[in-house]
Design a protein around this nucleic acid. Structure first.
Length: 333
DNA sequence: AACCTATGCAACCGCAGCGAA
DNA sequence: TTTCGCTGCGGTTGCATAGGT
């Protein structure tokens, strides 16, 4: 941790500017008192009016990540871990979106948790499951590796999902599994993926073959055989749309936050907003290019209960299994 | 006890989006 | 239309601490 009186450079260089480094208890008090008395306004005004020699950005960060009264401190519960993993499989590194669905947790906290704990675990799993044959220069993913990864993740509780054979054809199971696997493949820590021919959840930029997905929605688009978007030379997915849990009120302060406004302007563009709490109201626009998309307005509790299934869009099972079976190194059947 | 290394996490940085002027 | 300031986000850094040797 940085010391409140960060030595040397910062303080010297910022005598007439803004303070940097760790926050002192006095600064915390000032900010806390100001926020409680005045609420959030322009952050640069907050910094000034609270008598802090900090930039507004720093004040905002401190409040959001540390001082906010509704923050939940302490270790992540297993349920939260599962939630994070699952949401990450759907949302990727959109930490703020993930945090919006975890009451009392901050994006920074989740990001740190992911980058340290979970990535480490996955890395261990990868190394422990990778067969010698797949550790060579070939970037082709191995069925064994992926299968092992999944099973080991289950064994170790990283990815818990009911694998009862009777549920193996469940669309939600396969959907969640597919989303997880897709995202797992996109994870930079897994070098098995040839990123030059990989998937781009965010659409557009970079040298990726672009398979676009709108913000707030995990959508893995079309990869057809015989197109330039081949994945290791093989077509894989017809469009995959995975719904994510809608933003819910994550604060006890606003019970009425359950109301969600879902607007359909008939151009396949949806937008919804959900109060997160009185100070942090996040908006999220969802753009869909699939007519079957819809926004689940279910309660969070219906969406996630430990290992229960994530609510997903209406998928045709056959189509789904076709998608999955087309996957060159997965066999769910 | 001293040193080294790994880990966790608070905070910073740069960028993009947005609205107002 | 452009510029500017503010906000929010994701990536990264750097320090304190725990654990190992």
């Amino acid at each position: 941790m940085r010391k409140p009186e960060a030595s040397g450079k910062n303080n010297v260089n910022n005598i007439n500017k803004f303070r940097k480094g760790l926050w002192s208890p006095e600064e915390d008090d000032k900010l806390m008192n100001y926020m409680l008395n005045n609420g959030q306004g322009c952050w640069s005004d907050v910094a000034r009016n609270a008598g802090l020699q900090r930039c507004g950005k720093s004040c905002r960060l401190r409040w959001i990540n540390y001082l906010r009264p509704d923050l939940k401190r302490g270790a992540f519960s297993p349920q939260e871990e599962e939630m994070i993993i699952h949401l990450h499989s759907l949302l990727g590194n959109r930490w703020s979106q993930i945090a919006a669905r975890l009451p009392g947790r901050t994006d920074n906290e989740i990001k740190n948790f992911w980058n340290s704990t979970i990535k480490k675990r996955l890395k261990n799993l990868q190394s422990s499951n990778a067969s010698p044959n797949t550790s060579d220069s070939s970037s082709e993913p191995s069925k064994d590796v992926m299968g092992g990864l999944i099973s080991t993740m289950q064994e170790q509780g990283i990815f818990s999902m009911n694998m009862d054979p009777s549920l193996s054809s469940s669309s939600s199971l396969a959907t969640s599994m597919k989303a997880m696997i897709l995202n797992t493949m996109m994870d930079p820590l897994l070098p098995m993926l040839d990123y030059d021919h990989g998937l781009n959840m965010y659409g557009g930029a970079g040298g990726y073959e672009s398979i676009t997905a709108p913000p707030c929605m995990a959508q893995v688009g079309v990869l057809n055989s015989g197109t330039d978007h081949g994945f290791y030379g093989e077509g894989i997915f017809e469009g995959i749309n995975v719904e994510i849990p809608p933003l819910e009120s994550v604060s006890c302060m606003e019970e009425n936050a359950k109301t969600q406004n879902i607007q359909d302007n008939n151009t396949d563009k949806y937008s919804y907003s959900s109060p997160v709490n009185s100070l942090y109201h996040r908006n999220c626009n969802i753009t869909s290019n699939n007519k079957t998309d819809n926004i689940a307005a279910d309660q969070m509790g219906n969406l996630w209960h430990g290992s229960e299934e994530l609510k997903v869009g209406e998928w045709d099972l056959e189509e789904l299994m076709k998608d999955v079976s087309a996957f060159p190194f997965l066999d769910f059947q």
